[in-house]
Simulated scan of single mutants.
Amino acid sequence: METRLNGKRLSGASLLIFANKQDIQGSLSPDEIAKVLNLEAMDKSRHWRIVGCSAYTGEGLLEGFDWLVQDIASRIYMLD
């Protein structure tokens, strides 16, 4: 999986991972998911974030999409 996440075609892309089912006991935390995916080893220029959420309650969904919009917007304005 590391190869695909670090692929040249994705260079500069924002990566948002929703860690769903956080309302269920025993689900992996965002930090645990980051370790499993080895995201800390990813190229430091790559922007990524894991947001814990529950599609059932809606918790975390706005936070994740807000981060994504802000991250993309910050780089669009840098290109001007």
Score class of each variant (00 low, 15 high):
27 S>Y: 04
7 G>A: 15
36 V>N: 12
70 Q>C: 00
16 L>D: 03
55 A>I: 00
60 G>C: 06
31 D>P: 02
29 S>N: 06
52 G>N: 09
48 W>F: 11
61 L>V: 15
66 D>G: 03
13 A>R: 15
74 S>G: 05
13 A>Q: 12
67 W>V: 01
63 E>V: 03
51 V>L: 07
12 G>I: 12
67 W>F: 10
47 H>F: 03
22 Q>A: 08
43 D>A: 08
8 K>F: 10
66 D>T: 11
59 E>T: 03
43 D>P: 11
57 T>F: 03
35 K>Y: 07
36 V>I: 10
45 S>M: 08
11 S>H: 13
4 R>N: 10
71 D>N: 09
5 L>V: 10
49 R>W: 04
64 G>T: 07
8 K>E: 13
32 E>I: 00
48 W>A: 01
7 G>L: 13
67 W>D: 06
10 L>R: 07
50 I>M: 08
60 G>Y: 11
74 S>P: 03
40 E>V: 00
24 I>Y: 09
77 Y>T: 04
28 L>F: 12
19 A>C: 11
74 S>R: 15
3 T>V: 05
27 S>V: 04
61 L>M: 14
48 W>N: 04
44 K>N: 10
35 K>S: 06
10 L>Q: 07
49 R>C: 01
78 M>E: 13
17 I>C: 08
22 Q>I: 07
3 T>E: 15
14 S>M: 13
27 S>A: 12
36 V>P: 04
18 F>E: 08
69 V>Q: 01
42 M>Q: 14
49 R>T: 00
28 L>N: 08
65 F>M: 14
3 T>N: 13
62 L>F: 15
65 F>P: 06
35 K>D: 07
18 F>S: 02
33 I>G: 07
67 W>R: 07
72 I>M: 08
19 A>K: 09
44 K>W: 04
70 Q>E: 11
62 L>C: 05
73 A>Q: 10
78 M>F: 07
55 A>D: 01
61 L>Q: 09
7 G>H: 15
77 Y>H: 08
25 Q>I: 07
57 T>M: 03
25 Q>A: 09
76 I>F: 01
5 L>D: 07
47 H>V: 00
